[in-house]
């Protein structure tokens, strides 16, 4: 994919926060040297898998330009987020990169009707259009997600089911015809019988509208089901990245191996429920020097605790571990 034109490119993005007081505080790097790209003309569902406190939400906020990276760059169509000036450019970025949030009941204002929210989005992104045109845009977006204006029109968020609301929030996101959707845990609050409808919807958006989707989740099974490429994020680092099926069926990084092993398989008795030791707290791992996973890694070597392993690229896969690329000591 080297010669394909990049749509969204994230290069060595880094974001850190301070822990503790002004003088005694420590620096916690929430997202560290993360790079990935989405390509034009090749719409893609890119999954980012991580546990709570892995930095995945910070990363999604940076992609949405709600946070600016401390170093590195995030660029849409070769325009860096740092260089954007004025409302016009920022609005253009927001038009092309739209969010879908975790809890549809919090996405919508409970005191406003759902369709008002859709009209407001249409008016904000297409100022100067008539009410009828805004209505038409909302109608078209709702149809694309399998809803009709007659179904949600005039109704308040509590009158709709979680699945319908999440569809409505996807409809809102596609009103400005974005090129990229950033979905942060979009199905974790949706009922089990409706969950697959949302997941299938993402696949349809990719195939029919050509929208690229950044799908952020902790659920390996749905990521395997819909995504083409995947990245595993652990304590701010992408530890492994590549085609989904290859990574999840033959994980290389010990952390990915642990995740795949821990994902409960919905077939009776197929996962062994090992009773391991309680994990350390998140901050300790974040502040560790060297590979952040070394403290829990069964294959940790001395050098893992001293310096961060480099990215080792093998074809279309990347792994950040000393065990690969001829760096193995033993």
């Amino acid at each position: 994919m080297g010669d394909a034109i990049e749509l969204l490119s994230v290069k060595s993005a880094k974001k850190s926060f301070r822990l503790g007081g002004i003088f005694s505080g420590k620096e916690l790097i929430a997202v560290n040297e993360v790079s990935f790209s989405l390509f034009k003309d090749a719409p893609d569902i890119f999954s980012i898998i991580g546990e709570s406190g892995s930095g995945k939400t910070t990363l999604s906020r940076m992609i949405l330009r709600l946070l600016l990276p401390d170093s590195g760059s995030i660029a849409l169509d070769q325009v860096d987020v740092h260089s954007m000036k004025g409302r016009k450019q920022v609005l253009e970025y927001m038009r092309n990169v739209q969010p879908i949030f975790q809890n549809p009941f919090e996405t919508f204002n409970p005191l406003n009707r759902v369709d008002e929210f859709l009209f407001a989005t249409a008016k904000n992104f297409f100022p100067g259009e008539t009410v009828d045109q805004a209505r038409e845009r909302a109608e078209r977006a709702l149809n694309a997600v399998g809803l009709a204006l007659s179904e949600v029109g005039g109704r308040y968020p509590h009158e709709l089911s979680g699945g319908q609301l999440q569809r409505a929030s996807v409809a809102r996101a596609i009103i400005p015809n974005p090129k990229v959707l950033v979905a942060d845990e979009p199905v974790s609050m949706v009922d089990a019988s409706l969950r697959m409808s949302i997941v299938n919807l993402f696949q349809d958006l990719k195939n029919k509208l050509g929208t690229s989707i950044v799908y952020i989740t902790h659920d390996l099974a749905t990521a395997y089901y819909i995504s083409d490429r995947i990245a595993i994020i652990h304590r701010g680092f992408f530890v492994e990245q590549g085609p989904t099926s290859a990574i999840l069926t033959e994980p290389r990084h010990p952390y990915t191996q642990l995740l795949v092993e821990s994902a409960l398989d919905p077939r009776p008795g197929s996962t062994s429920l090992a009773d391991g030791a309680a994990a350390t707290t998140g901050d300790e791992e974040f502040l560790a020097i060297g590979c952040k996973f070394a403290g829990r890694c069964p294959k940790a070597m001395v050098k893992c605790r001293l310096s961060e392993p480099p990215e080792i690229v093998d074809g279309d896969r990347m792994v950040r571990c000393y065990l690969y690329g001829g760096n193995d000591e033993s």
Binding site: G163, Q164, D191, M196, N200, P266
Partner: peptide
């Protein structure tokens, strides 16, 4: 409709809501 790793077959879903 339960997805699991190693299965990419398209899953159906139920119409309507509880």
């Amino acid at each position: 409709s339960l997805p699991h790793i190693g299965d990419k077959e398209r899953k159906g879903y139920l119409k309507g809501a509880p």
